[in-house]
Design a protein around this nucleic acid. Structure first.
Lengths: 165, 165
DNA sequence: TAAGGTTAGTTGTCGCAACAACAAACTTCG
DNA sequence: CGAAGTTTGTTGTTGCGACAACTAACCTTA
């Protein structure tokens, strides 16, 4: 099997993407850590709940929306529950299942954290790009997600605000 | 301070980028783990060394090229050294400094791991994009790196193959 | 040449993620 | 009905990354 090495242009694009993927999580995490004592994963767990009907989601659904495995989510939710930011209760319809709900404290926490997080995203990502590049980025990311997430397991996250027309 | 929330288009692009950033490391790591018993970070450490003159770099230079902090690199190198894939020796010019060099075993390891890694990158990233999108991606990533890496600390990595003209 | 400050690197501790093993509840089908 | 298999979620262990504290060496400048 002959290796199909990357061309110069492919390598240039790839290495830059790789570097972005390496640096971006740090930028997000350190701001949220500092200003709200949340990891970016915890932030998105709370954010997904805050958007859900009744501020409630089943663990499996929440795991899908945050690209987490169930064990990982379980640990994180336990910590957030200990901090009073969310709560769990058995699902009435399916006694195997657990519902996760954001508490009022969690709601306040996310409201208070959101502006700083958005400002951070804006200054590091959005403002760096022209409107044209923003559209290109959406197309590129969609193409990549087709390969990275072939079952569209995370589609509820990244397609949640699409127009249905 | 009024929050400047994201527009619908900005949010769409951002959420997709975020999802890619969340999923991509897993795709890279699991292939390298499985096929070569290396994390993607370890792979790039060895790869940077294999490209360096005399297959050697000072720890600080290696840290810059891999976006690692010095403590992190130190731990990782200790493990790679224990596995015989690289070695450290004092720098003659500056007795504070340590040189890191890839061993013959490490060289063989990276040669053996590269084809699978490249094939993985190709199938999950490169092949998902049109040539036009590949060029756009490079421009977008460059713009982002201007914000994420303002001091261009990682430039030796992502600019290493640029044409000098 | 000696003191203050900076740079290079290592080590120790803590927290989180991955993985595997497990328990409990649902579902299917003979 | 009941046994096999699947889905849902939790827990325990292991390993890596972040951060802080530390040592050692270099570089000023008085």
């Amino acid at each position: 099997m002959e290796t199909n090495w990357l061309t110069k242009d492919e390598l240039a694009a790839w290495v830059r993407l790789y570097t972005v993927v390496e640096l971006l999580p740090n930028v997000l995490d350190s701001q949220l850590r500092r200003d709200a004592d949340l990891t970016s994963f915890e932030y998105y767990v709370l954010a997904m709940l805050s958007e859900a009907p009744d501020r409630t989601l089943r663990m499996t659904a929440l795991a899908a929306r945050t690209s987490a495995t169930l064990p990982r989510l379980s640990h994180v939710v336990k910590r957030l529950e200990a901090r009073g930011l969310m709560e769990r209760f058995p699902c009435p319809e399916d006694r195997r299942a657990t519902n996760a709900r954001i508490t009022d404290d969690g709601w306040r926490k996310i409201l208070e954290a959101a502006p700083g997080h958005v400002a951070n995203v804006r200054s590091h990502v959005i403002d760096a790009l022209t409107p044209e590049q923003l559209g290109q980025l959406r197309g590129i990311a969609d193409a990549l997600l087709g390969k990275l997430d072939p079952d569209a397991a995370m589609a509820p996250l990244y397609r949640r605000h699409d127009v249905t027309a």
